[in-house]
Amino acid sequence: MSEMTYRDALNLALKEEMRRDSSVFVLGEDVALYEGSFKVTRGLLAEFGEERVKDTPISENTIIGVSVGAAMGGLRPVAELMTVNFALLAMDQIINHMAKICFMFGGQTFLPMTIRMPGGGGSQLGAQHSQSLETYFMHCPGMYVLYPATPADAKGLLKSAIRNNNPVIFLEHELLYNSKGEVPEDPEYLVPIGTADVKRPGEHVTIVAYARMTVLALQAAEQLAEEGVSCEVVDLRSLAPLDEGSILASVRKTGRAVVVEECWRTCGLGAEITSRIYENCFDILKSPVKRVSGLDVPMPYSREIEKICLPRSETIRQAVMDVMSGAY
């Protein structure tokens, strides 16, 4: 194990997979010479050269379409969209093409491709650069959606994504790039797709979270422990496929649940997970499930009003207290 940042863990995953398999190549806006807007692709051009580390025009839909074609032709593209917000320009290739091709062509081809997308709010970047669009991707069958919370998961999940033969949307939270953690050095360290991880065991309440929300949930759980409430934090890691078994097992143990999502509340993944808990655990619930969500508003710029639009450890703590007391 060695301590490194989420950014460096992602960078290491890319380097290891590119060394392992010559069909892996990286493309995106400013990923080569500039080494990535968030420096996740630092050092790749120097090590792997111009044919494997490709700067592209600002043409998001075509970045994904070219990746689809390259994957169909036998390569393993890892595309970077500079932020998840720009993925909206590529939704035709993502939804209408990438997610459909294996099925509508009767399984005669497959697309081993990964699209990396930094995203999330909280950096005072305004309405067009602060969105959490994970639910948009989860809604559509035909691709996987991953979103790590820790450097170790970042490395293990990205490596699994690149090796997988299906299209993978790989989300990265911009506020986690500098977070640090222990990361296994083993180049065969992989985190399986479709598995949640209990980041903190507990007895009284299950907190279901992902990515930066997991970090906030762990902070809230730490404080709640001092107040005598034992929280179990389930980190989804994989949003699609969703590890329903791990979520339900935890809720069956605690009898209570809080679901935390950074995205908008309406039709968010919290609604989906809450519904699955009710469908499967209604008889054993000690209290209604509570959601902590991003507010249903475009993100404002000003720091003081931006912060109230996103879940915080304090709002998660309050939700847990409400669930414990039955206050609704």
Binding site: F25, E51, N61, T62, I64, G65, V66, S67, V68, G69, A70, A71, M72, G73, G74, L75, P77, D92, Q93, N96, H97
Partner: peptide, 18 residues
């Protein structure tokens, strides 16, 4: 989807060269 095949063709051509 009208025009959907353009970038896919470009990607296939890239894979051939690669």
């Amino acid at each position: 989807i009208v025009g959907g095949q353009f970038p896919i063709a470009v990607g296939l051509a890239f894979s051939a060269r690669y």
